[in-house]
Write a protein that binds this DNA or RNA. Structure first.
Lengths: 137, 137
DNA sequence: AGAAAAATGAGAATGATTATCATTATTAGT
DNA sequence: ACTAATAATGATAATCATTCTCATTTTTCT
């Protein structure tokens, strides 16, 4: 565990930071290959795990079986499309009442440290597709 | 797609309902095998998917790579242990202000239909273990 | 009963992730 | 700078949850 990042790690971190679409390990691999063609997929996984452990990035999981990465490490909330599964960042700060969060935590006995709000519904793209679908048929 | 459940499906549903621990497909398989020893794992997966589709149960996913099932289909929130990954139901209704949810949905453009609050922190078991760990060492 | 349709289970296939390990790069001590 | 020790790398095999395939069995309908 070192503090300083080497070239491979820097390339991975830069890629995740540049992407706004929560890339998967494979997507990171394909993008980083452009700059560092000799890098292996195993290193991508290793480096992503290290970056998560060192808090440079966060790991995201939802519906599908691949996990995604996000360089936006500050606490924020997500919207999940019930049709296509897309995971969107909620771009505003949703200030939930602290007392409600604490009451909920107390009800389970956990030592409350953070939270996330998830909204479910059809994303703008899928709403558009649904309309188009109807008019076409 | 039928309305009526057959014996295998009933056995699976009963097991998921009886369990309070969000069982995985393998756990359901092992438990259902006791009553119906000839059942195959493929059927467990098929039946679980059908039950989800027919809204008898819900599928849950968090940190690990296995998906879990829950017969508690009413909207409710979860607490996730940051140490062991346990997913606990929050046993009270957390009434978040509707206007905040709607504002958040509007910010992403999704057609808001439901939501889930996730709390993160150490679960009671892990809190206990941490204390024990310290006194032992 | 008998034909058609659906469900079943055994095992193979898939696909993301992890482990292994020989090789290469980096660091530390002198 | 020179070597010994240590860590990082990448190719490939292994793992494991889940899905697919398909021949057989069960159910449904008449």
């Amino acid at each position: 565990m070192h503090d300083r990042l080497n070239k491979n790690s820097m390339a991975v971190l830069k890629m995740v930071r540049a992407s706004h679409s929560h890339p998967t390990a494979s997507e990171v691999y394909e993008a980083v290959r452009q700059e560092r063609p000799q890098i292996g997929l195993a290193s991508i996984y290793r480096i992503l795990h290290n970056l998560v452990e060192q808090n440079y990035i966060k790991e995201l999981r939802h519906g599908d079986d691949t996990c995604r990465y996000d360089a936006h490490t500050a606490r924020h909330d997500h919207a999940i499309c019930t049709q296509c599964g897309a995971l969107l960042d909620i771009p505003i700060d949703v200030a939930l009442p602290q007392d409600l969060l604490e009451a909920a935590a107390q009800a389970t006995g956990i030592e409350f440290s953070s939270h996330e709000l998830r909204l479910y519904g059809r994303c703008p793209t899928c709403q558009g597709q649904a309309v188009q679908h109807k008019t076409v048929e």
